[in-house]
């Protein structure tokens, strides 16, 4: 939280201050003013840019489009939502997208846990630094570069098939598994870093205590480590889940025939903005439901 208490050491005595510094004096004397001054810019950003544009988007979902000129006509109709709910293709796509997002989140968590344990508790400091760098390294490369790299890797005559060929196997090729794999690869750092940081903060004596009381590795992991990791996992899963929900580029590059919600929104955003807006309510709802489900478990209190 923001510290609003005046600090004594940071300011020189009143007498030595130049006359032009009256603003500083004023701010020094009025902590509340200082707080508002500090918060006003980020708040203006949050409300003005983020919330207003979100509200405008939601309002558009109730408007209609002229079918010929694709001009947006303000008004009020629920037809866009009705359209989504009665079109099997839209419903299937929505279900598929939520499924992919959940799967990506589970995969990221399943991979982040052992890696985190190894890095925080087993690896030597040198190994640890190397692995921390290896996790964050993909974040340095551009998003499109990474997706295109996956496209090349998974192609019929790409390196994945080349590596597997001697064992008589072949890679997943383009399609739904490739989309899940690519999104897992893209968002993994967002899960791995919080989990690793949380693991580092677990005091070593908890492990000693667990061992003294006769708990084995699995039991310690299940009853000591996992509960302490929940906040980090939830924070990470919010990233992996919501980022996967909105993605359409991975589907475009490695999805072959896969249609995601983002694909539909992208296709309608210029042609039929109200339908695109209504479609984009689906991921918002999904994230809302996800947050609600987490809240029910009480895990948010520990965040």
């Amino acid at each position: 939280m923001l510290d609003t208490r005046p600090t004594d050491t940071a300011h020189p005595p009143e007498a030595t201050r130049p006359a032009g510094n009256r603003l500083a004096t004023l701010l020094h004397a009025h902590p509340r003013l200082r707080l508002y001054g500090l918060l006003s810019l980020p708040l203006a950003w949050m409300v003005g840019v983020y919330l207003v544009s979100l509200a405008l988007l939601l309002v558009t979902a109730f408007w209609t489009t002229d079918p010929f000129t694709s001009k947006v006509i303000p008004g009020f109709t629920l037809r866009n939502f009705e359209n989504i709910l009665t079109t099997p293709a839209y419903l299937r796509t929505a279900a598929r997208t939520v499924g992919v997002a959940l799967l990506v989140t589970l995969l990221c968590a399943a991979l982040a846990l052992p890696l985190g344990v190894f890095m925080a508790k087993v690896a030597s400091p040198r190994w640890r630094n190397f692995l921390a760098m290896a996790i964050t390294l993909p974040l340095w490369a551009g998003y499109l570069v990474k997706v295109f790299a996956m496209r090349i890797s998974l192609g019929d005559s790409g390196p994945v098939n080349w590596l597997l060929a001697p064992y008589g196997l072949s890679g997943p090729g383009y399609g739904l598994p490739a989309v899940v794999l690519t999104l897992t690869y893209l968002w993994f750092p967002f899960m791995a870093l919080p989990v690793y940081t949380a693991l580092r903060q677990i005091p070593p004596n908890l492990f000693d205590a667990a061992a003294d009381l006769g708990a084995g590795t699995w039991r310690t992991l299940r009853t000591v480590v996992l509960p302490l990791l929940m906040p980090a996992m939830i924070a990470g899963s919010l990233f992996t889940f919501s980022l996967s929900l909105g993605d359409f580029i991975a589907a475009q590059f490695v999805g072959a025939k896969v249609q995601m919600l983002g694909t539909l929104i992208n296709q309608n955003v210029n042609l039929n903005p109200p339908l695109a807006a209504a479609l984009s309510v689906v991921p918002i709802l999904a994230v809302g439901l996800y947050l609600f489900a987490i809240r029910r478990t009480g895990a948010l209190k520990e965040l």
Partner: peptide
């Protein structure tokens, strides 16, 4: 049929 109907139809092709 207009282009909007085509766009909806296209979504059903890709499922």
């Amino acid at each position: 049929t207009n282009y909007q109907q085509w766009t909806e139809a296209w979504a059903s092709v890709k499922g």
